[in-house]
Computed example of a mutant assay.
Amino acid sequence: MTIRTVVWGENIHERVNEVVRSIYPDGMHTTIAAALNADDAITASTATLQEPEHGLTEARLEETDVLVWWGHKDHGAVEDEVVERVARRVWEGMGLIVLHSGHFSKPFKRLMGTPCALKWREAGERERIWTVNPGHPIAAGVPENFVLENEEMYGEFFSVPEPLETVFISWFAGGEVFRSGLTWRRGAGNIFYFRPGHETYPTYHDATVQKVIQNAVRWAYNPQPAFAGIHEAPNVPVDKALEPITERGPKLHKADEEGYR
């Protein structure tokens, strides 16, 4: 079975900005999905902000192994119910790949629990991306470093939790550096943030960038069944204890009564 992947795109800039439309006439999400579909291990489809429930119904997310997210102009338009739905699926084991300005997206901030803020400058400057963890699966087939001639600068400090792993670090022509490829685990779900992808530059047409995203989807995929039990907080009866015990002292709850949340 291939890795069932949904590429979610905000799909605003492509419709209102001529420069972005000229680079991505069918939308950035479509370009990214096409690159993923070039990998025989991945089957990618798309969803956008404008669709009912943003294209992320409960049924669709239940059938999604990895979700790829790009947003920028209108993070606030994403419905909170959908955000919680995405977070629940990540906790259950769905992989999440967050791209570029998706660092401010509601799902990413919900899962990180921090501001996810950074410095930025839109000057089309050169970005050199260094592979600092060459043995990591996301770096497979990626050179020691590669250059994007025109990109938006993101600079430290990046206010995210300490990552599980740092795979890439970027240097920009203006002098700033940025941790541009980071991983986390939330519940049973693997998360990867990848920095490049400003909409006015052809970043997602770059073969190395596409390779990284392909690798990230493969890495984020969890072949285990959804860990639905992660949401449960059962009240274990005394007579169900693994070792015999005697109940002692007062308590708040009756047998089988749910706890407070």
Rank of each mutant, 00 (worst) to 15 (best):
T5Q: 02
W8Y: 09
N11K: 00
H13S: 06
R15Q: 15
V16H: 03
V16S: 06
E18H: 05
R21F: 06
R21I: 07
Y24H: 04
P25Q: 08
P25W: 06
D26Q: 11
D26R: 04
M28L: 15
I32D: 01
A38W: 01
D40E: 11
A41V: 10
T43K: 00
S45R: 03
T46V: 14
T48C: 00
T48K: 03
T48A: 07
L49V: 04
H54M: 02
H54T: 00
G55E: 02
T57D: 03
T57L: 04
E58K: 04
E62Q: 09
D65T: 10
V68L: 01
W69L: 06
W69H: 06
G71V: 00
H72P: 04
H75P: 01
E79K: 14
E81W: 11
E84N: 14
V86N: 11
A87Y: 02
R88A: 13
R89K: 14
G93R: 01
G95T: 06
I97P: 03
V98P: 02
V98E: 04
H100E: 06
H100S: 03
S105G: 14
K106W: 07
P107E: 07
P107K: 06
K109H: 09
M112V: 13
T114I: 11
T114C: 05
P115C: 14
C116M: 13
A117H: 12
W120N: 10
A123F: 08
E125T: 11
E125I: 14
E125G: 11
E125R: 08
W130I: 13
P134H: 09
H136S: 15
H136N: 08
I138C: 06
A139I: 09
A140Y: 08
G141S: 08
V142K: 04
V142R: 00
E144H: 10
E144A: 15
E144P: 05
E149G: 09
E151W: 12
E151D: 14
E152C: 07
G155T: 03
F158T: 03
E162F: 14
P163L: 08
P163F: 12
P163S: 09
L164K: 15
T166K: 14
V167S: 12
V167K: 11
I169M: 15
S170A: 15
F172N: 01
A173E: 15
G175F: 09
E176N: 13
V177L: 05
V177N: 05
R179Q: 15
T183Y: 13
T183L: 10
W184F: 15
R186S: 13
R186W: 09
G189L: 11
F194Q: 01
F194T: 06
G197L: 06
H198Y: 10
H198N: 02
E199R: 04
T200C: 07
T200V: 14
Y201W: 13
T203Q: 04
T203E: 01
Y204C: 02
H205F: 10
Q210P: 01
V212L: 03
I213P: 02
N215L: 01
W219T: 06
Y221H: 15
N222T: 13
Q224A: 15
A226P: 02
A228M: 08
V236M: 10
P237C: 08
P237T: 12
K240D: 14
A241D: 11
L242W: 05
G249F: 10
K251Q: 12
H253N: 09
H253M: 07
K254C: 03
K254L: 10
A255D: 15
D256W: 11
E257G: 04
G259V: 12
Y260H: 05
R261Y: 13
